[in-house]
Design a protein around this nucleic acid. Structure first.
Length: 620
RNA sequence: GGUCUCGUAGCUCAAUUGGAUAGAGCAUCUGACUACGAAUCAGAAGGUUAAAGGUUCGACUCCUUUCGAGAUCACCA
């Protein structure tokens, strides 16, 4: 059953007021409502400035007239006041208490409450690791964003398909392979106990070390910089290895399969630790050939053109860009070729799901790449290449506007020393960072003596939840578009605006609720009997905001909206908790009402945390 | 050099997309546990929103210029 929300009621009646009072019609988007600032009396404020065009009266006069109309016609509006062009409306307590009694707070329930949201199928690509090195902090941001946005979209009535794209082939993969072949002495993850992805990463660094020393010795013999980098024996060897790989050389393929196997085993552990899952994983090695087919067809239909050396290009000069390479002169594919193949593969695989939107969660360093990819897709659709013409995919990377391919471009995670670079060893390793967080959680929890009555397994699970809660919140609370700074020397906090703060608030409420149950208090309330206090109303108002916060977060693709909201709610509740007694309240009705308020708050805290991929512990 | 982002308290981040006196946390200082859980709460201090113009009822937000930081412009991914 859908409740009519007060905002909708007010918008409707404000339009009515303008019509009645000034014989003008205004559209709903001209009506702006906002929360009343705490220093003024009221719950909701209507901005009348935009309406003075219709009224042709001063803001104050207009505000008073509308205020009067709303008070007469909307039973929920009890009192109003006007400050400059701001019309502050007081909403009757019964509206808030009714909301509290009737609301449902599981994210799934908002699928119904947010009924104006469109139901559609969205594919979200994220993670997208390379198999030549372990995951680092940058990948963590990517994974957490992808996972969280998927949850948020689900709560906003979308059907979500999460996909990973593993970059498992190419020259960089061969570098690790060659280095292992030369200097590995048959070392394996089981022989030295190293996690597979870390072992392979070690040889990627090893390659670079030897390569650099070859380059510098060539340079000291008088070779020019560029020449040295092209002619170093190691680079020649690795190129030869890639050719053999593409030719299907058994020895090389076996080596590749073995080492990638190590990496996948390592990744699986990291993903499990992070709590990230996918409906399907794609491998570049399985889609790049399909990309080449698209290029062939595009060539014959005039989307692409061939240069004398055999390389294939697209001319994007009319679109304000450049000529862009699609296929190398030796016929091997590049990144963008593979992306086209993967796109087509996905559309085929999920034909029955009728995908409306595909979101690529990829860093902002690749904005140019996606601009090009989307433009190429548009041209392929126009020429009906590879069946693209029958699809509804658009070209736009712009937010909104019904665009079907969207690059969710997020900012880099920087260290105080600047950008992270794998080869230079200036990365914050994902596994190490998670371990550190869990250790800190373990130490802090023990120091606070919170493990009483827990067995070892429960305690370990708790440390994991808190450590990862801190890490996830730390990363997700920042606007995805903005770059963020991480200082490894300063450990992530557990106090203040943090994940554990919210988890603690939840656990504390659970403790109260357990005691309430022991005391056989039901937590229901006859709303009319009690007077609600300001702080209680503030909490209810925040609970009331939850559905619209989900909607906004989904539209902006921003988990930060959820993080900011849930922090606000936890803070507000804690203030209430300190100010009022719950189980020891004077009147029975107050007790029940406050238990109810606490229980609902806990539900929303848990639901919000879930949207961020964070677990709410029952005790901590 | 072309294109694109960004610049808010000492530090890390907010500001409902143009709305009221720019808010939080950390760090610093002060106070509150014999209490339904102190990973909490209350308070103090901290700002010419990089700078200068402009647009309008109203600008951290939009436009122009300057300064500063970063990304990108590969037969890399």
């Amino acid at each position: 059953m859908k409740e009519l929300r007060i905002e909708n009621i007010l918008v409707g009646h404000t339009i009515g007021a303008i019509k009645k009072l000034y014989e003008q019609s205004v559209s709903p988007n001209q009506i702006t409502l906002q929360k009343t600032r705490p220093e003024f009396e009221g719950d909701i404020t209507l901005l009348v400035f935009p309406l003075t065009k219709a009224s042709k009266k001063s803001p104050e006069e207009t505000a008073n007239a509308i205020g009067n109309y709303l008070k007469e016609n909307v039973s929920e509006v009890t009192v109003y006041n006007v400050v400059k062009g701001f019309l502050n409306l007081v909403i009757d307590d019964s509206y808030w208490t009714n909301y509290l009694l009737n609301s449902e707070s599981r994210p799934e329930s908002f699928r119904d409450q947010n009924s104006e949201l469109k139901e559609e199928t969205v594919m979200v690509e994220f993670s997208s690791p390379n198999t030549n090195k372990p995951l680092h902090l940058g990948h963590i941001r990517n994974n957490l964003l992808g996972a969280s946005i998927s949850e948020i979209l689900k709560a906003a009535r979308k059907k979500v398909i999460r996909v990973n794209l593993v970059n498992d082939r190419g020259i960089h993969i061969c570098k690790s392979m060659l280095a292992w072949q030369k200097w590995g002495n048959g070392e394996t993850p089981s022989s030295n106990g190293m996690k597979g992805d870390h072992l392979v990463g070690k040889y990627y660094v090893e390659f670079d070390k030897h390569f650099k020393s070859q380059v510098s010795s060539l340079k000291s013999q008088g070779t020019a910089d560029e020449e040295a980098e092209k002619n170093a024996p190691l680079i020649k060897e690795v190129q030869e290895m890639l050719r053999k790989w593409e030719a299907g050389d058994k020895e090389i393929i076996d080596l590749w399969k073995m080492m990638n196997g190590w990496v996948y085993y390592g990744f699986a552990i990291t993903y499990k630790e992070l709590g990230v899952e996918f409906e399907k994983t794609y491998y570049e090695s399985e889609t790049y050939l399909l990309g080449k087919k698209i290029v062939d067809e595009g060539l014959s239909k005039g989307v692409f053109f061939k240069k004398d050396d055999g390389s294939v290009w697209i001319d994007l000069t009319k679109d304000g860009l450049d000529e862009k390479l699609i296929l190398r002169s030796d016929g091997t594919s590049v990144y963008i070729t593979q992306d086209l193949g993967t796109l087509m593969q996905r559309l085929q695989d999920f034909k029955d799901d009728k995908i409306n939107k595909l979101i690529y969660v990829v860093g902002n360093e690749q904005e140019y790449h996606f601009k090009v990819l989307f433009l190429i897709t548009k041209k392929l659709i126009q020429q009906n290449v590879a069946g693209f013409g029958s699809l509804s995919f658009g070209e736009s990377g712009e937010r909104g506007g019904g665009a079907s391919l969207f690059h969710l471009s997020y900012g880099m995670v920087d260290l105080p020393s600047g950008k992270m670079k794998s080869r230079e060893g200036t990365v914050v390793d994902a596994d190490e960072l998670m371990d550190e967080m869990i250790n800190t959680a373990r130490e802090t929890t023990k120091a606070l003596g919170k493990t009483d009555g827990m067995n070892e397994a429960e305690a370990e699970k708790l440390y994991h939840n808190i450590g990862l809660g801190a890490l996830k919140y730390f990363i997700l609370k920042v606007d995805p578009k903005k770059r963020m700074l991480f200082d490894p020397k300063e450990s992530i906090d557990f106090n203040g605006n943090t994940g554990p703060f919210i988890q603690y608030t939840y656990a504390r409420i659970q403790s109260v609720l357990r005691k309430a149950e022991e005391a056989k208090l039901k937590g229901t309330s006859e709303k009319s009997k009690i007077e609600i206090h300001k702080k209680e109303k503030e909490v209810i108002k925040l609970l009331h905001d939850f559905p619209s916060v989900i909607k906004e977060a989904a539209e902006a693709y921003s988990p930060a909206y959820i993080a900011n909201y849930v922090y606000e709610l936890a803070k507000e509740y804690n203030q209430f908790y300190h100010e009022f007694q719950i189980l020891k309240a004077e009147k029975e009705a107050e007790k029940n009402f406050r238990i109810m308020l606490s229980a609902k708050t806990a539900e929303v805290l848990k639901s919000s945390l879930k949207l961020l991929g964070i677990t709410a512990p029952e005790r901590m």
